[in-house]
Design a binder for these strands. Structure first.
Length: 490
RNA sequence: GGUCGCGUGGCCGAGUGGCUAGGCAGAGCUCUGCAAAAGCUUCUACGGCGGUUCGAAUCCGUCCGCGACCUCCA
């Protein structure tokens, strides 16, 4: 297998590294999925989009990718105090339904949303509740290795003990000494933990808790960090290629995952840690608590107060891809509108392409242009540069149509093939609302267009303008080009 | 306070020790009965101050501003 060099930024080493799979052509990738206690917002979508691109591009490079993205359906506590409440249970009480109804409802919702944004489904989508037995076994191993202790029916990971031998904090750049400085103030109040940085891997359940399981330590729930270690190990092995997630999961979540894996007797679990940056609104992280988060539906309808109008899912997808995944992206109406127009320009080239006739020779090097697209993707999935390169190709397509360049049959076929490959398959963009118009509507409007063009030929401009204006009142706009008139809904 | 990151033209956003990123907006032009749409062309910026260098927006130092994480967060 001859695969060109792909470089990926590794959060662990803090530099771009040549990607060499542990067991090529297979690639194993784990991404922290959603906690299904409410609707995913746009910030969440950005992260999943990042890894959708990684999945798509690795697949394009002919790797056989096993992409695991979990569903957290238990164990994610509202906070980490002794009797922290499960996020899903809390929501279930609020909506007065069973916790599993909440799980089902928001899992369904999540899937609808991922489809909306054209995110590919992962190879495996395991749930935390489906792996309770494995999690209990995993906890036992950690205890046997001496890196966890039981208190009051809960089991905590012993960070201090772990740090004696291993480097706790290596991923997030935290020093255990700095953590120690905060010990005194944080240890007040009869905490069950020996050390404030210790984290629960099994949490005792209160009597009224509905979702709980039997364990050697009594009834309880697994800790949030644990599921990812357990399920990644189960489906990808003790060591796998890529682990992804949002930047805000780096600490403590991913740090704890490493500790659990190593503490259970395994090796350093992940070769490349990838973290996608946050979506911001007016420079501040999008989050529900700040009230600045958009739900997909608010985005499409434009019903959120911060939005001037609605934007299609593909516009948002394209907008996200115009920034590199490791940079923050700021959400603004101006930027969205710019993306909307830019995307439209890119996509309209497909129909332009159909009108181009091949010549004997090509006057430009189309292979080189697409090679640039590959290069930018291979440089840590640099989609903004790839898009810039595609716009350059778009310009050539337009120049071809104007006859200012020529292209051979072979090159034209290559161009069509590659343009479609990059835009549809690799960037995962797609046409929208094209098929939403009924055949009848289209035929009726075509008749009106014919009538109008006849009027124009007869220089009967009052009739032609009448047709155009009346259609406009129905939110239908006509677009004249040199050889034809097309229409679209406003 | 600790750790990390960022500051690019009107806006959004790449990148790089010397060679035009790109998109949107603006301007000009083409097309056109008019308008719209579309296309082409164009607009040359890198927070302040020092330093290294033949040359820095890119490296180093410092200051200013902004943000993320520090056990809810994608």
């Amino acid at each position: 297998m001859n695969i060109p060099s792909l470089y990926i930024y590794n959060s662990l080493s803090r530099k771009k590294e040549l990607f060499v799979p542990i067991n090529a052509p297979f690639v194993s990738m784990y991404v922290c999925g959603p906690t299904v206690y409410n609707e995913a917002h746009l910030g969440n979508i950005r992260t999943f989009l990042t890894f959708d691109i990684v999945f798509r591009y690795l697949t394009h490079l002919k790797y056989k990718v096993r992409y695991v993205r979990n569903i957290t359906d238990v164990g994610h506590l509202v906070d980490d105090v002794d009797f922290g409440e499960d996020k899903i249970e809390k929501r279930a009480k609020l909506e007065k339904v069973e916790p599993m109804e909440i799980v089902q409802k928001y899992t369904n919702n999540f899937h609808t949303t991922t489809q909306l944004f054209n995110l590919l489904n992962p190879s495996i989508e395991p749930t935390a509740t489906g792996h309770i037995v494995e999690q209990i076994d995993y906890i036992k191993k950690i205890i046997e290795n001496g890196y966890a202790y039981e208190t009051n029916g809960s089991v905590y990971f012993d960070v201090k003990k772990y740090a004696e031998k291993f480097n706790y904090g290596e991923l997030s750049g935290r020093k255990i000494d700095e953590l120690l400085e905060q010990t005194r103030e944080n240890l007040e109040g009869g905490n069950e933990k020996r050390f404030f940085a210790d984290f629960a891997i099994w949490k005792k359940a209160s009597p009224e808790t509905i979702m709980k399981w039997n364990s050697p330590w009594g009834e309880g729930v697994p800790g949030w960090h644990l599921e990812c270690s357990v399920m990644s190990t189960k489906y990808l092995g003790q060591q796998f290629d890529i682990h992804g997630g949002g930047m805000d999961l780096k600490f403590p979540h991913h740090e704890c995952e490493i500790a659990q894996s190593v503490g259970s007797g395994g090796p350093q679990p992940v070769k490349i840690w990838m973290h996608s940056n946050m979506l911001t609104v007016n420079g501040t992280k999008m989050s529900k608590s700040l009230g600045n988060s958009f739900l997909p539906i608010e985005l499409i309808t434009g019903s959120h107060p911060l939005l001037e109008k609605g934007y299609s899912p593909m516009t948002v997808r394209f907008f996200f891809l115009q920034a590199q995944y490791r940079s923050t992206v700021d959400f603004s109406n101006e930027a969205l509108q710019a993306s909307e127009k830019g995307l439209n320009r890119l996509l309209s080239s497909f129909s332009t392409l159909e009108k181009i006739n091949p010549s004997a020779e090509s006057t430009f090097n189309i292979q080189a242009l697409f090679e640039k697209c590959e290069d930018s993707m291979r440089d840590d999935f640099n989609t903004p540069v790839t898009i810039a390169n595609l716009f350059e190709i778009t310009k050539y397509i337009n120049l071809l149509k104007e006859g200012k360049h020529t292209i051979s049959k072979v090159d034209l076929d290559f161009l069509k093939d590659q343009y479609s490959l990059f835009i549809y398959n690799i960037l995962g963009l797609k046409e929208e609302n094209e098929s939403s118009n009924s055949e009848l509507t289209n035929n009726l409007i075509q008749i009106l267009i014919q009538l109008r063009n006849q009027s124009k030929q007869n220089k009967d401009y009052s009739t032609s303008d009448l047709i155009r204006n009346e259609l406009n009142k129905l939110n239908i706009s006509l677009k004249d080009s040199k050889d034809e008139t097309t229409w679209e809904f406003n």
